[in-house]
Write a protein that binds this DNA or RNA. Structure first.
Lengths: 217, 217
DNA sequence: TTTACAATAGCACTTTTGTGGTAGAAACCC
DNA sequence: GGGTTTCTACCACAAAAGTGCTATTGTAAA
């Protein structure tokens, strides 16, 4: 490797692999090391092993099997996303695991590969990931979008007057009546009145329920 | 059209176009009508015109320019998503409008086209949309995923015991102390105690603030 | 010009919350 | 075994929230 320039070495993209099937894991490791500009800095059969070493190695990318024995790939992604967020996670999955893929993305992955993907396409996907993309199939993308779209607004909150919405907004920040009164330069009793009206309009009976309706969830 | 079989007619995918540039709009209309299996059921220069006719026509797909004069394409998507949710919206956009595209997706679109896209690829994208996909570029997909991923959990909430988390969960639903007590089969005073401890650990002083910390925001 | 509604405010009262103290039983860790 | 933490529970009190009245003002709609 050092035969080539050291400058080249420094731009190497470091990839780790977490996969329980020995053959597939070794295949990935070889593929990565054989590809110009990439090096495999770690290969693990379980999430537990990976968690021990990844924090020190900090690879750029981690290829993670979605269904690892023991601690699952999804749990591993969650751990990495929460604790070593510089690592970009890509899931490796068999067919028909849409639900799992979705959960993995939610947990912190940015893409996934089918295990049937060709070596060239695997490295394309990794490259895409590093370049700020999110390699995934179109139907998974649709699911992701659907879940991120703002939920349909409840008509009920639209019945609120501007002032009531303002009060509700402050209410949702956890302010007391007297604090809201101070902020809006009105009396506590008026704030109470607004809240009372808000609760009636939203058909709820306390601030928490009102806030929940307001935030839709 | 009816020259061909009527069965064929019934499976036609209906596409509407909302685009202010006459040439581009007409180009899309022709492209759609020339493509087997598709028909254009409406072409509008503004969102306002579209809103008048779309509820009755209910096309399968709407191609919408993202920056329409007057009511924007994003507002139109929002309207459609809220009111005629059977229509799949795809945005048409020039370059460098990532932010707008992102907002359009959030408002209810499921994909987007660059205006430089070739006729064949446009119809591919429409097909993808109808088949449950979400045609978009990889970097927009990444943005979408990033915003949908569960935010990093606050360390503070991790200090809570299992029971405290359970209480906080119920608290966040708007339940009263006595309701929580009933659900957990413990006394009201114990619930109060748990809440008191929760507030201390989270450094807050009422349920709303605790819930806000819990939900991270 | 009525009518309707929004915003304001006060008062009285009940219920719910939040704070403080104490304390026993069970589980877990050195 | 001894120490620590967690869950449980009771009491008392202060603070805040919620409910039910009434009432004035300004503004917008019919």
């Amino acid at each position: 490797m050092l035969k080539y320039s050291t400058a080249y070495f420094y731009t190497m993209i470091k990839v780790a692999v977490v996969e329980d099937l020995d053959d597939y894991r070794n295949g990935l490791v070889n593929l990565i090391n054989w590809t110009d500009g990439y090096e495999c800095t770690g290969a693990y059969a379980t999430a537990e092993e990976a968690i021990k070493e990844l924090p020190a190695l900090k690879p750029d990318v981690a290829l993670i099997d979605i269904s690892l024995p023991g601690k699952s790939g999804i749990e591993l992604v969650e751990y990495i996303h929460q604790n070593i967020s510089s690592i970009l996670c890509m899931m490796c999955t068999a067919y028909d695991e849409d639900e799992k893929v979705f959960k993995a993305l939610q947990a912190g992955a940015y893409g996934y590969l089918l295990k049937t993907t060709s070596p060239a396409d695997i490295m394309n996907a990794v490259q895409q990931l590093v370049n700020g993309g999110a390699p995934m199939s179109s139907d998974v993308a649709r699911k992701v979008i659907a879940s991120f779209q703002s939920p349909k607004k409840n008509n009920e909150t639209e019945n609120l007057t501007a002032r009531e919405k303002q009060v509700l907004e402050l209410l949702s920040k956890g302010l007391l009546y007297k604090e809201i009164a101070f902020q809006l330069s009105i009396s506590i009793d008026t704030v109470k009145r607004h809240c009372f009206n808000i609760y009636e309009k939203l058909h709820v009976s306390n601030r928490t329920e009102a806030i929940n309706k307001y935030h839709q969830h």
